[in-house]
Design a protein around this nucleic acid. Structure first.
Length: 446
RNA sequence: GGGCCGUUAGCUCAGAGGGAGAGCACCGGCCUUUUAAGCCGGGUGUCGCUGGUUCGAGUCCAGCACGGCUCACCA
């Protein structure tokens, strides 16, 4: 539309926004204001506004929030602009905003004062908008399949469902220790026992471990469980979910991540852990037959680990040498049963678990298995874990007799999975650090 | 926790033994279609903190704090 057409229509508007720039030109002033969706130029003229109101404008600063009323027109450079008939002062910004050319660069300040990051860096807002949209689409996806969303306790008297160190706290009235949950898994499976046969939960988990570009102490996990399915069904569901999310949110199924292009075209690669180890670790197949040798080798990779079992050694070699090579989505299947205490053993090889980890862009994105339903077997596995715990492995499970009792009422065959939402958002937004996709990542207080 | 790097004005940064600086922001003046507006004038500071070396430390050394990258553990 040309300026003549626009002015002829006399479109009047009231637009609120934060002042982002001011260009004073004597008896006229241009400024840009912005709200969460768009930026608009405002044109103030002394003759349109009156002398008093015009001179009062000099009290305003960049960062202040005002509301502008007037008609739309286009300047000679073609920019849509509102000719200000009147303005209302709404909020004062007492601090100068970061500089307009470079914005706010300092990563520490960006995380500590995320509001400034969001004001100055519109692409940061887009990251969090995408995150929000992703989560609502995940809800829609599961709701349409007949799943129900549930909320299970965040405070556990026995932390379970994952191999991780918990945060500990104390309840005064009950006089008991409580742990922030490391996973909702055992509660969700109790619900399957109760007949809620398709459940999911999207919520925070807390793990008292190191902080890195892929780890925040609190992170968001999607977990879902469906009765009468197994881990193969979970693989298909995962492909469908993530592919659909990409098509809906990004309108494509190939996503740039760093120097790589991650293709989500189905079907995704499936490989057994042992085959992945042989293919990527640089060790010959015969080396893996020497179990003691493998354990010794793994110890050189992770010197802080004390007693290493063969299964754990394989896991360490995988994390160290294999994972980073898996850029395209890959289901790494059938890890050792001994490091999968909640998963059913494989029918074809009882030393393996019916379990997979989904690796993408070198990061573990999901972990799923055919759930172990046998209460006696589960009890044995917990007891084995408890022994590891006594040996000093703080990440082993405690024995959860209440969960065993739930299993004794009959858990139908069930497939279950957890997907790390933060990491998925990282891939979808091409961000290298998990802190870029968490609004307020944990930092040491200054 | 280990290694490497960083921390100077509100923001983005330069300064690497001897006057604490630039641009933006801010303050004052000029300017009625500008847009990284322009022109004139103004520096607003615990150089992260604490010690040390030195006649003299933003600069060299040590310790500490916070952060980044990376390794280790985890998802």
């Amino acid at each position: 539309m040309t300026n003549e057409e626009l002015e002829a229509k006399k479109i009047s508007a009231v637009v609120p926004g934060r002042i982002l720039s001011i260009r004073k030109m004597g008896r006229a002033t241009f400024l840009h204001i912005a709200d969460s969706r768009a930026k608009l130029q405002v044109y103030l003229r002394e003759d349109k506004l009156g002398k008093e109101k015009f001179s009062q404008f000099s009290l305003l600063d960049i960062g202040d929030i005002i509301s502008v009323e007037g008609n739309l027109f286009k300047t000679r450079t073609g920019e849509l602009t509102i000719l200000c008939k009147s303005y209302t002062f709404l909020a004062k910004c007492l601090h100068p905003l970061p500089e307009k050319w470079h914005g706010l660069q300092d990563v520490e300040l960006r995380y500590r004062k995320r509001y400034l990051d969001l004001i100055m860096n519109p692409e940061q807002r887009d990251v969090f908008k995408l995150r929000s949209t992703m989560i609502s689409h995940i809800r829609r996806f599961f709701d349409q399949k007949g799943y129900i969303e549930v909320e299970t306790p965040m405070m556990h008297s026995i932390p379970g469902g994952a191999l991780a160190k918990p945060f500990k706290t104390f309840h005064n009235a009950l006089g008991i220790d409580l742990y922030l949950r490391i996973a909702p898994e055992l509660f969700l499976k109790r619900l399957i026992v109760g007949g809620l046969e398709k459940v999911y939960e999207i919520n925070r988990n807390f793990r008292n471990e190191g902080i890195s570009s892929e780890h925040n102490p609190e992170f968001t996990m999607l977990e879902f469980y469906e009765a009468y399915t197994d881990y193969s069904d979970m693989m298909e569901l995962t492909e469908e979910l993530i592919h659909e999310l990409a098509m809906t949110l990004l309108q494509r199924d190939e996503i740039p991540y760093g120097e790589h292009m991650v293709s989500l075209k189905k079907p995704w690669k499936r490989i057994k852990l042992m085959d992945a180890l042989i293919q990527y670790s640089g060790l010959t197949p015969s080396r893996f037959e020497d179990q003691e040798g493998i354990v010794e080798y793994a110890k050189t990779l992770a010197p802080e680990q004390q007693a290493l079992s063969y299964g754990k050694a394989l896991d360490i070699i995988f994390d160290k040498h294999v994972k980073k090579n898996l850029i395209q989505p890959t289901f790494v299947m059938n890890p050792p049963r001994e490091i999968s205490p909640l998963a059913k053993a494989s029918k074809t090889n009882p030393e393996e678990a019916e379990r997979f980890e989904l690796v993408m862009a070198g990061m573990e994105i999901a972990n799923a298995f055919t759930e172990l339903t046998d209460p006696a077997e589960q009890k044995k596995r917990f007891e084995q874990q408890a022994k590891e715990r006594e040996k000093g492995d703080e990440e082993s499970h405690m024995v959860d007799m209440d969960y065993i009792e739930a299993l004794e009422y009959g858990l139908p065959p069930t497939g279950g999975e957890g997907i790390g939402i933060d990491r998925l958002v990282m891939i979808f937004t091409n961000r290298k650090s998990i802190r870029e996709v968490i609004l307020f990542p944990l930092l040491r207080p200054k």
